[in-house]
Write a protein that binds this DNA or RNA. Structure first.
Lengths: 344, 344
DNA sequence: GTGAAAGCGCTAACAC
DNA sequence: GTGTTAGCGCTTTCAC
């Protein structure tokens, strides 16, 4: 039972192979009745075009490359992040009959540029998706740009307008988290900022301020502590905030690690979470579910972002649509156990 | 700058394309001097065969499929596991000019069999690697077997002798961990067994007993507690073991989750780790580094196992070598902070 | 709108 | 040992 070829379909539909090809590739200039005949033959025969033959004849592969930071290079907490990106990209690729080539890539390696160029030269992908933090590294973006391959960048800190960029609504969702805390009756809501170089994290601070304003609460410098994204810095900031006479009843940290640090310190100080202190994080990493109490946080829509990127790439190949602008994929609050009504 | 083809290489080397093809595919019947000429031309031109053309002409893809349990289906602590498998397989594929197609797959879905068959039919991979726990599921293994595609199973609980199986030395390394604990002066070393259905975990218990014997310690039923792989069961077992009058000075758990449970209970009971109690786990999951003190454990060589599987698959395609038997990839102790000298 | 013919870059079968 | 000749299954070009 060799699998059917385009010739089999053409014979069965009573047309030429070129017409079948047109139908398969959704090209114009096919009469509706002809298209239907061909589609029926395709369905009857369960015909699936041979990707290798398509690639060979068309000089481009039905394949998308997903580039992300190689976790083996240092630690592996990022694996959940990668898996979610893969899932989203995979979903879009499968639907379109594309393949997904994964390419972990160590940006600390001085040859990344050449490595990417060679990869592209070898597989000639229809497009490339670059995930953060790589999506913001000039040497990587430039190397890909130089090959002329369609590129989509995920959550880059800055946008250069040359490619499509997919981001999430960090600022807006952070405002929403702040409003949520306010709606629980909290009036002294503290914020722990992240590492200053991390742009997305900076947006969360802006969102926090927006949220305060939208809730009619006034901002106070004394309720902001400067962290650096690590658990340890979360602990230090928590110490600083909780030792004050008039301590906050809620602490919103710019990422989950710092929020976990807050919980740890609260435990140490005998402050009950969420009864006496609500704690919220951001990112929804695996740790958020492992701490006790489980952390209320913001779920990054990584899978949806990667899926959107892949869909856009595939559409641009097929329809010659330009890949430009910015797509905002909304995040969502993950309400768990670490937040609750403000104490009296 | 169109990339060079086999014709360019043939012209430059002054041979026919078939000879170039022979060199590229490491076929016999090429004079050494000819081979060298061709290899030089390949290097000069930076020639890389076009995979699509190779696939089309040879009716098989230079591609390996890695099948693993889809984490989206339930939780995501398995992402580190998946990433490590991918890294190993990727490494082998890159070296050989193969591609890796990743295929997360939900075995709870009743259509998995058909899904896999269709995938195989569509991409015609050179081989398939199936990771645990899928590697032990009859409906998955049978579906793949039915297609005749070369298959390698990773860490299946049972071996059926029809395919190559890659496992780790669970029993031996567990014995080593036990000897390590004994070498620290511990004489009352307890063990927490895992879920009985989990074969690999059962081997760890055997290794524990081996290790005791090799260290000249005598086994005692009273130092064994039966867990079920969860953190909670680790806590219960720890309670049971630590409340005894003559409590153990070291506890070796059949997995990291249970070991984490032990640490939690020790903390609750005011028993200092590692000063008063050494705790060791198994698997080296991300949690092992997150608990305090960081867990001494056994590092599963997942990446190396997947790499071996891919290398074997590629070799079997090229050299028509049969894929049979069992390869044992050794694990290694990860000594961290949760183990130390036995108290006086 | 549709089709015929000419490859894409490689491997397979067989000749030499 | 090495080369020749056919394809593999599709897209492209261009004719109709």
């Amino acid at each position: 039972m060799p699998r059917p070829t385009i010739d089999d379909v053409a014979t069965r539909a009573g047309v030429s192979i070129k017409t079948v090809s047109r139908v398969v590739n959704r090209e114009p200039n096919v009469r509706e009745s002809t298209r239907e005949k061909v589609e029926k033959a395709i369905a009857d025969l369960k015909y699936r075009p041979n990707p290798s033959a398509q690639n060979l004849a068309s000089h481009r592969a039905r394949l998308i490359v997903l580039v992300y930071d190689d976790p083996s290079a240092y630690e592996v907490p990022s694996s959940g992040y990668i898996i979610r990106l893969q899932q989203g990209a995979l979903k879009a690729c499968r639907k379109a009959g594309f393949e997904l080539l994964i390419h972990p890539c160590n940006y600390r390696n001085s040859h990344v540029g050449r490595e990417l160029r060679e990869l592209i030269d070898q597989v000639r992908p229809a497009g490339i998706i670059v995930a953060a933090p790589l999506s913001n590294m000039p040497k990587i973006v430039r190397a890909i740009e130089a090959t002329g391959t369609p590129l989509v960048r995920l959550s880059p800190g800055t946008r250069n307008g040359k490619q499509l960029t997919v981001v999430t609504n960090d600022r807006e969702i952070s405002a929403e988290m702040t409003r949520y805390l306010a709606s629980l009756g909290h009036t002294r809501i503290a914020f722990i900022t992240g590492h200053p170089s991390h742009k997305a994290v900076g947006n969360r601070y802006l969102g926090y301020r927006d949220g305060l304003e939208q809730s009619g609460l006034k901002f106070s410098e004394s309720l902001v502590a400067a962290g650096n994204n690590s658990i340890g810095s979360g602990e230090e900031c928590a110490m600083q905030l909780l030792k004050r006479k008039h301590r906050p009843t809620a602490i919103f940290a710019a990422n989950d690690d710092m929020a976990a640090g807050v919980i740890r310190v609260a435990d140490r100080l005998g402050i009950k979470v969420p009864e006496e202190l609500s704690v919220a994080g951001c990112d929804d990493i695996a740790l958020a579910r492992q701490v006790y109490p489980a952390l209320t946080t913001i779920n990054q829509p990584l899978s949806a972002m990667a899926e959107y990127a892949a869909v856009a790439l595939i559409a641009s190949v097929r329809g010659k649509r330009p890949l430009l602008g910015t797509e905002i994929v909304p995040a969502a609050l993950q309400i768990r156990e670490s937040t609750g009504p403000a104490p009296d």
